[in-house]
Design a protein around this nucleic acid. Structure first.
Length: 152
DNA sequence: GCCAACGTTGGC
DNA sequence: GCCAACGTTGGC
C-alpha cells in the first residue's frame, strides 16, 4: 500500500464535500507528473492525506482512501467545463482521475506551520521550497506520524 | 495582491 | 532541442 497527499482548494472542493459525496472522483488535475501518478501509481486501498491549500490556515484536514483506480477524466472532453482540453482525444485520453472516499477527519487541521515544526517530517516533499505538485507521494513513516498528530 | 518558483508553449 | 515568454500555483 502506498501513501499520497492530495491538495485541494476548499473553495472548490473541501473535506466537507468529500464527506457529503461518499465517493468522489478526483477531477481536474492538469499537470503531467500528477497525471502519471493518478493513471499509473495510485492503487485501490492507498491512503491519502487530504490537504487544504489557498486558505487560512492551510494544512491537512483528514485521511481519504482510494476506492477506484485511474480512469479518464471526462471533463477534458466537455467544452463547457473549466477543465476542458481541446487537444484531448477520446481515443487516447490525456487526463486521468481516481475515486476516493473519506476515511476519517482530523480533530483539527494540522497546519503547515505544525508540519514544518516536526523534526520527523523535515524531508517531506510538501515542505520543500517551490513544491507545488498537487499529487505527492508520502513515505510510510511520514504518513504514520501525521496520522498520529492528526488524531490526538 | 504580490511574487517566487515552477510548468508549458511555441518560434527558431 | 533550446530557451524566452507566458501562465499557474500557492504561501504569505
Amino acid at each position: 500500500m502506498k501513501f499520497w497527499l492530495f491538495k485541494t482548494e476548499p473553495d472548490v472542493f473541501s473535506i466537507d464535500d468529500l464527506e457529503r459525496e461518499k465517493v468522489s472522483f478526483w477531477e481536474g488535475v492538469r499537470n503531467y507528473q500528477a497525471r502519471n501518478y493518478l493513471r499509473d501509481e495510485v492503487k485501490l486501498g492507498d491512503l491519502i492525506l487530504f490537504y487544504h491549500s489557498s486558505t487560512q490556515p492551510t494544512g491537512i484536514v483528514g485521511i481519504a482512501e482510494v476506492v477506484g483506480e485511474g480512469e479518464p477524466d471526462p471533463h477534458q472532453f466537455n467544452a463547457k467545463s473549466p477543465y476542458y482540453d481541446e487537444k484531448a482525444d477520446p481515443n487516447k485520453p490525456r487526463w486521468f482521475g481516481v475515486r476516493i472516499k473519506l476515511k476519517h477527519r482530523f480533530k483539527e487541521i494540522l497546519t503547515l506551520e505544525t508540519l514544518r515544526n516536526e523534526a520527523k517530517l523535515k524531508d517531506m516533499l510538501l515542505l520543500k521550497r517551490g513544491m507545488r505538485l498537487s499529487i505527492q507521494p508520502v513515505s510510510d513513516r511520514e504518513f504514520q506520524r501525521i496520522n498520529e498528530l492528526g488524531l490526538r
